[in-house]
Amino acid sequence: MFSSAYKYKVNQWYFRPTDVFLASYPRSGNTWMRLLLSDVIQHLGGEKTQPGGNVIPDVYKVDIEDWYRNPRIKIPFRIIKTHEPLALISDYRIIYLFRHPADCLCSYYHYQLRSPRFRENNSGIDGFCQNLINQWCGHINGYLEAAKTGSDRLFLVSYESLNINPVESLKNVCNFLDLDITEAQAQIAVNNQQFRQVQTLSQRGDSQTLGFAENGGYQNFFRRGQINSSTQELSENTRTIISHKSQDIYNQIRELESQQLTNINSN
């Protein structure tokens, strides 16, 4: 949907019933969560961890079967990054990351600016965000409707919650995955994968330490990582259009996220 369709189709033949998908619309915190979970996975495997060190594959870029022959990955299931809509992965366990649409789309715009073709033909940040807000709504809505059924195979995580309390968010995700981690282990992962530290790795182009290579380089990959940064970039008209189309959907999915957390804390 958003990247190499060929690689995705090849990998799709080898999906397993036990696979877990780390899903999101682009620029919603997927890579940060991959790094946090990778830190936990390696820590549970007895390794000393450091900034970077991703061990969770991107379904659009690598051969999943080859990737998971890595003996360092010592959990009994595979976690796979994807940006696909729910309809294509609905039979699997899913962690769904979502982000306020204005921030998400602004970040996506700057990510796309890495492409010379995009730079030549783009209509500016306001036009880009206005053109994609319906796509964002459609992506979110599929997962929202599934969450409304109370499915125990879908876990919601907002970028906002992850940003404000990453230790708690990481522990909750690990609980969903049945990975038994301590508060101290979660804190180590968060300390290792702080935004500025992984941003520094990306600015150096250190793909080996990061654990993933990025087509077109890493510029603007870890850009700001802030909440409400879009208010400084978008016109009032664009913010109004985004709010009109998406605020109800966003509010609903945040409420369902809150309900999930309440259920976790009450058990």
Rank of each mutant, 00 (worst) to 15 (best):
Asn131Ala: 13
Phe195Cys: 06
Thr182Ile: 02
Tyr25Lys: 07
Tyr108Thr: 04
Ala186His: 08
Thr262Ile: 10
Tyr109Ile: 11
Asp248Lys: 09
His244Phe: 05
Ser4Trp: 00
Asn131Tyr: 03
Leu256Asn: 07
Thr209His: 05
Glu145Trp: 00
Val62Trp: 08
Ser38Lys: 01
Gly150Ala: 07
Asn265Arg: 15
Ser24Thr: 11
Cys137Asn: 10
Gly45Cys: 13
Tyr8Cys: 03
Ile73Arg: 10
Gly53Thr: 01
Ile164Tyr: 05
Asn192Ala: 11
Gln194Asp: 13
Arg93Val: 02
Ile125Met: 14
Glu145Cys: 02
Leu37Tyr: 00
Asn131Gly: 06
His100Gly: 09
Ser107Arg: 04
Phe222Asn: 13
Thr149Asn: 08
Ala213His: 05
Leu162Gln: 07
Phe212Arg: 06
Arg117Gly: 06
Thr31Gln: 13
Ala213Lys: 05
Asn192Lys: 07
Thr49Glu: 15
Gln42Ser: 14
Leu113Glu: 14
Ile241Ala: 12
Phe176Asn: 15
Gln50Pro: 00
Gln185Ile: 00
Asn134Gly: 09
Glu47Met: 10
Cys129Tyr: 02
Ala147Arg: 02
Pro101Val: 00
Gly124His: 05
Glu84Gln: 10
Ala184Trp: 00
Asn267Gly: 13
Ser243Lys: 07
Asp248His: 11
Leu156Tyr: 09
Glu233Ala: 08
Ile56Asp: 12
Ala146Pro: 00
Val20Cys: 11
Asn267Gln: 13
Phe118Trp: 14
Arg153Gly: 04
Gly216His: 02
Asn251Arg: 12
Pro57Leu: 11
Leu88Ser: 06
Ser169Trp: 08
Arg114Trp: 03
Val62Ala: 09
Ala5Tyr: 01
Pro51Tyr: 12
Tyr68Cys: 07
Asn172Met: 07
Leu162Asp: 06
Arg196Ile: 05
His139Asn: 14
Glu47Asp: 13
Ile79Ser: 10
Val167Glu: 15
Asp91His: 07
Gln232Met: 12
Arg224Gly: 03
Arg27Cys: 11
Asp39Cys: 06
Cys129Met: 04
Val167Ser: 14
Ile140Ser: 12
Tyr218Phe: 15
Gly150Arg: 02
Arg119Asn: 09
Phe128Thr: 03
Thr18Leu: 08
Ile56Met: 08
Ile125Pro: 01
Glu168Phe: 03
Ala5Thr: 01
Tyr60Glu: 15
Tyr159Ile: 01
Leu35Ile: 02
Gly150Lys: 01
Asn70Thr: 01
Asn11Gly: 08
